[in-house]
Simulated assay, not measured.
Amino acid sequence: MTLMAGEPREAVGSEELAVWRMLQRAQVRITRALEADLLVEHDLALASYDVLTQLSESPDRRLRMNDLADRVFLSRSGLTRLVDRLQREGLVGREACPSDARGLFAVLTDDGAVRLAEATPTYLRGVRAQFPDILDTDELRRCAAMLNALSPERTP
């Protein structure tokens, strides 16, 4: 069966579903491996690492809580609980937003930057072991092209 452009597809075929499930399993396997390494070596969950990274890459090491939640793919309440924990550990602080009395910034502390710097080699080593070291250059390029096609923010 050939579909015309814009024509809806009602069902997902068994091969398509199998590929979807492989993608899910690969993502979960890689994420679990990265998380295990970060927990064992740095007592830092992957979501915490992601928050620290996003803050470190932001101007003045700060982001509005809503923007941070969007970047780390957490619900607002999930991010609030995580930032609460990171704040208790001294890795993140909160500051009021001068332009919005209800808005809050999450801010990376100096201790948070140190912890991130210590954990980053472990994270990068894990990423390398779980992904690019498994694929050759051509496979990596094809994978990037496929993932780019699935991304709403497609890059040229």
Rank of each mutant, 00 (worst) to 15 (best):
E10H: 09
E10M: 04
E10F: 12
A11V: 07
A11S: 06
V12Y: 02
V12I: 15
V12Q: 09
V12N: 05
V12F: 04
G13P: 00
G13E: 10
G13V: 01
G13H: 02
S14T: 09
E15S: 07
E15K: 09
E15G: 04
E15P: 03
E15Y: 07
E15I: 08
E16D: 15
E16W: 07
E16N: 09
E16H: 09
L17R: 09
L17Y: 07
L17I: 04
L17M: 07
A18G: 13
A18R: 14
A18F: 08
A18N: 10
V19D: 10
V19I: 15
V19F: 12
V19K: 05
V19W: 10
V19Q: 11
W20V: 09
W20R: 11
W20P: 00
W20I: 06
R21V: 08
R21Q: 13
R21A: 06
R21N: 07
M22S: 12
M22V: 05
L23N: 07
L23F: 09
L23S: 13
L23M: 13
L23K: 05
L23T: 14
Q24A: 09
R25D: 15
R25Y: 10
R25C: 09
R25K: 09
R25E: 15
A26S: 08
A26Y: 03
A26E: 08
A26K: 01
A26H: 03
A26G: 07
Q27E: 14
Q27D: 06
Q27C: 03
Q27R: 08
Q27M: 07
Q27Y: 13
V28R: 10
V28I: 08
R29I: 04
R29L: 11
R29T: 15
I30E: 14
I30N: 14
T31H: 13
T31P: 01
T31Y: 10
T31A: 15
R32I: 02
R32C: 14
R32G: 13
R32A: 15
A33G: 11
A33S: 15
A33R: 15
A33H: 12
A33P: 02
A33I: 06
L34P: 02
L34D: 05
E35N: 15
E35H: 13
E35V: 00
A36Y: 02
A36T: 06
A36S: 03
D37E: 06
D37W: 03
L38R: 03
L38G: 02
L38P: 00
L38M: 04
L39G: 00
L39H: 04
L39V: 04
L39S: 00
L39P: 00
V40G: 00
V40D: 02
V40M: 01
V40A: 04
E41Q: 05
E41A: 00
E41N: 00
H42D: 06
H42V: 00
H42F: 00
